[in-house]
Simulated scan of single mutants.
Amino acid sequence: MKLLRSIAVLFTLICFNCESSKTYEEQIKKYKFYIKKTDSLIANEKYEDVFIYVNSAIEITDTIPIAFYKKGRAAYNLNWLDIAEENFTKVIEIEGEQSKTYKDRAKVYLKKKDNDFLDDINIYLKYYSNDDEAHVLKREYFEEREDFSKAIEEYNYEIEKHKDSIELYMKRSNLFYLNKEYDKALEDYNKVLELSPDNTAIQGKKKSLLKELNDHDNLLRCITIIIAIYVFYILLSFFVFKPFVIKKATNQIGGDFIIKKDPLIWLLPILLSLFVISLYFTGFIPNFK
């Protein structure tokens, strides 16, 4: 049935186009009919049928961008990304740098994981900076590539416009965490809890992060103490033990002699390192707070 319907449509269009003596007004009327038909087909998600009408419209004139745009939209929805890119490019060539179709082509590049996305979306935002969807696309692009700093910049822009958006603060806090900006993550957790005190998810994340930071701080202090102990022992060995041994040996034995190196100088750091590692993995790092 679908094949028969397509053949019937094609036959109608061929007959329509065979009339070579049509006036300019009639051609425009026909063009508008094709475009209106494509709008109906797109609305009903009959994307493949769109090509029959837009191609006929393009045969009438290829200087009007709307048919190329409709063709690009249909191709995009069918995931025919190369065809979508080709037609959106034609629209841009006709409309110039201020074409809104830069955003549509950027969506194609985003799906294709093509870095040209960034060029197109930046050109679009140059003229339509208040388009929220474009900023969302840009955030998704940076998050997908784990460029957390750039993604955070986009969230900063959105939060400036939506200062009470819990969702935005939650998403940005996650990026701060992934970017190891823990203080800023905590600030966003606190902001969310200010807006939504009973938010158990953020309460849990805040508690977990505070514990993680405390454990990290305790570990650093423990390592610092261990290093201090080792340095203290080296000083003690060279400036106290060694002179004492030499003096005692001279008094009791006399003559020349060689004192071997203190074995603890190289053994002690190994023992201390093993000690810290065992504390870390058993969860017995002292809490210095």
Rank of each mutant, 00 (worst) to 15 (best):
E153Q: 10
K242P: 04
V276G: 01
I58G: 02
R145F: 10
G96Y: 14
L13G: 12
K289P: 08
I52V: 11
E26A: 11
E167W: 08
K29F: 11
N44K: 15
G96I: 14
I246H: 15
I258Y: 13
W80S: 09
F117H: 06
D39K: 12
L272K: 07
H216D: 12
S56A: 14
N251W: 14
D131Y: 09
A67D: 05
M170G: 00
L125Y: 08
D198M: 03
K36R: 07
L118M: 10
D114E: 02
N156Q: 05
L279A: 10
A84D: 09
D147K: 08
R145Y: 08
N122K: 11
E93Y: 04
V136Y: 11
K242R: 05
P65V: 01
I159S: 03
L13D: 12
A75N: 06
F238S: 15
K248T: 15
S129L: 02
D262N: 13
E146M: 01
V245Q: 05
K112M: 12
V136D: 13
G283D: 04
Y127R: 05
E146T: 14
L168K: 00
S173Y: 00
D217H: 09
A228K: 10
D262T: 12
P243Y: 09
K112F: 07
N44W: 08
I234H: 06
Y230V: 05
R105W: 14
V245F: 07
